[in-house]
């Protein structure tokens, strides 16, 4: 994950990752765009990944990434220090994703299914990256995928994931174990090391 250092603009002396994230949000509330940039750099991947895991198509996930940071910009003033800034950001992400799903539903449409062609032309990704992403998107259930992404990409503990997804911890643990087992079989099994 990204590491960073910043001197808080409005007092305090943050000394943990969470403190810094909170400080960015407080500075954003004061209209500090540098803080927005810092927060974006720190959380861009978790936000996009979680959105992708929920919506399963990169275009919608990119929209959510955009809207999420606009929301943060607008709503930073309402953020209350609770020591859970990442959970707050993920809640915004989740709600935006649910709204997106509802939009499809209102329009009488199904959200687009994942397509392996989505990332074919992405030059930032290796062949292994693409294969892993494809497996993750197409072979895991929605719950499994979201749990794996929140744990592996965003670094949330299982207990925190249970809170974010509003599921029992035991469910999160068992689904995570099942999912990581599937991923291991897929990665070690056959084609990713060709």
């Amino acid at each position: 994950m990204l590491t960073f250092r910043m001197v808080p603009a409005n007092g305090g002396s943050p000394d943990t990752d969470t403190d810094y994230t909170e400080q960015y949000i407080l500075n954003i509330a004061d209209g500090d765009k540098n803080a927005l940039a810092e927060l974006y750099n720190k959380t861009r991947v978790p936000v996009y990944s979680f959105a992708l895991s929920m919506l399963k198509n990169p275009d919608d996930a990119q929209d959510i990434l955009h809207d999420c940071f606009l929301q943060i910009w607008q709503a930073a003033g309402s953020y209350k220090r609770m020591g859970k800034p990442m959970a707050w950001i993920m809640t915004i992400t989740k709600n935006l994703c649910l709204m997106k799903i509802r939009e499809y539903s209102k329009a009488g449409e199904e959200p687009p299914e994942y397509n392996e062609a989505y990332f074919q032309s992405n030059d930032n990704m290796s062949a292994e990256d693409k294969a892993i992403l494809n497996d993750c998107m197409s072979k895991l259930s929605d719950d499994e995928r979201q749990i794996v992404v929140l744990h592996a990409v965003s670094g949330f503990k299982h207990r925190e994931i249970a809170d974010i997804l509003n599921k029992p911890l035991s469910t999160v643990l068992s689904k995570y174990n099942r999912a990581i087992g599937k991923m291991r079989k897929m990665i070690e099994g056959e084609r990713l090391y060709v």
């Binding site: 990944s49 990704m125 990256d129 992403l133 794996v148 592996a152 990409v153 990581i180």
Partner: peptide
């Protein structure tokens, strides 16, 4: 496995 998943999503993020 987690590291590989993280890397794949990280590289996919615009």
């Amino acid at each position: 496995i987690e590291k590989k998943v993280e890397q794949a999503f990280s590289n996919a993020a615009p």
